[in-house]
């Protein structure tokens, strides 16, 4: 029942934002010199657009100001106090601060915090329906798997509602009924088969990680030496913990590592990469295409150059502000 409600809700949101439109309602931006009636329409649309644009640019300035603030505001919208102190040390282990800024200076934890509070945490763009069958049944497993079909499939002509049995079948030799029952040998988006959204996954994962720190290293993660902190994270990648709240430790390690680097390198608009320290460190120019600060460079020339040119990075907010006529 709950599932049904969620589906109804998603259906309306996802199939589309606007209602069906016909051709006449759509303007093709490039068509202006082709057709005079199109041109008139376009002119009208353009003058409307100009009005809208000037409103937009003042709104944009406000937004950019706000965003600039968000980027430097320290505060949490999702992580609990216990999670904060633990995760802080984890991200600092993954990208330590040395003579150059690390995850700490980039505010990677704020990126993760905001992601967990938003679409990422809600698993908003994920396919979350059951059944939830965990992959990676070891290749040696010979257990068969029996799963009921959905009603809609059973109702199609020629199908029945009897449970379907899967015997595996070993690699490259169809017909041999042993081997991997539910694990395609691809990482392509199928690894995550948990019935948890990512916010829950992180909640469970952080608790399990802390428990492992205590059982295997004799104390909370925050209290361990930095060498042991890194070792512990390596343990997760190697699936060393034998009990980890029913999640595969390496799946959690993947998220930790990936999201920390994302917090170091994604646009500051998302709360990490503060002051673009990640971009400065890697030599990435963000959305400075060669002339953002009046450097007089050209992208086409940069593309064919054999020596690199260091450009001061520009962020999306700066770019949008400039594009909308702000300064």
């Amino acid at each position: 029942m709950a599932d049904q409600t969620r589906r109804e809700f998603l259906k309306l949101g996802l199939a589309a934002a606007a209602s069906a439109v016909t051709a006449s309602a759509i303007e093709i931006p490039l068509f202006n010199n082709q057709n005079s009636s199109m041109q008139t329409k376009l002119d009208n649309a353009n003058s409307q657009l100009n009005n809208a644009n000037s409103q937009l640019s003042s709104a944009n300035t406000q937004i950019s100001n706000l965003k600039a603030r968000v980027n430097t505001v320290v505060g949490f919208v999702s992580l609990s106090v216990t999670e904060q102190s633990l995760l802080e040390k984890i991200v600092e282990t993954i990208i330590p601060t040395d003579t150059d800024p690390g995850a700490k200076e980039a505010g990677a934890i704020y990126f993760i915090d905001r992601a967990l509070a938003g679409d990422y945490g809600q698993s908003a763009n994920m396919f979350m329906d059951g059944p939830h069958v965990l992959p990676r049944i070891p290749a040696s497993t010979t257990n068969t798997l029996s799963v009921n079909p959905t009603l809609s499939w059973a109702n199609l002509p020629g199908n029945s509602s009897a449970p379907i049995t899967y015997t595996g079948g070993s690699i490259g030799t169809p017909g041999v009924g042993a081997g991997i029952t539910s694990s395609p040998r691809v990482g392509s988006g199928i690894n995550y088969q948990y019935p948890l959204n990512f916010r829950e996954f992180w909640r469970v994962g952080l608790v399990a990680l802390q428990a492992y720190a205590n059982s295997a290293y004799g104390g909370n993660f925050e209290t361990l030496s930095s060498a042991n902190q890194l070792l512990l994270l390596q343990d997760l990648w190697g699936n060393k913990p034998t009990s980890f709240s029913n999640i595969l430790p390496s799946d959690f390690a993947y998220e930790l590592t990936f999201m920390t680097w994302a917090g170091f390198l994604m646009d500051p608009i998302y709360g990490g990469n503060q002051n673009m320290v990640g971009w400065t460190f890697t030599g990435f120019n963000g959305v400075n295409f060669g002339n953002f600060y009046g450097e007089g460079q050209d992208q086409k020339a940069l593309m064919v150059a054999t020596a690199p040119t260091r450009l001061k990075p520009a962020s999306l907010a700066q770019y949008q502000q400039q594009a909308s006529g702000g300064t």
Binding site: F127, P184, R185, V186, G189
Partner: peptide, 15 residues
């Protein structure tokens, strides 16, 4: 997706 006709196919859940 799955590799052989004898396997249970897992859904792609995320990008």
């Amino acid at each position: 997706i799955r590799n052989t006709p004898y396997q249970f196919a897992l859904p792609v859940r995320r990008y």
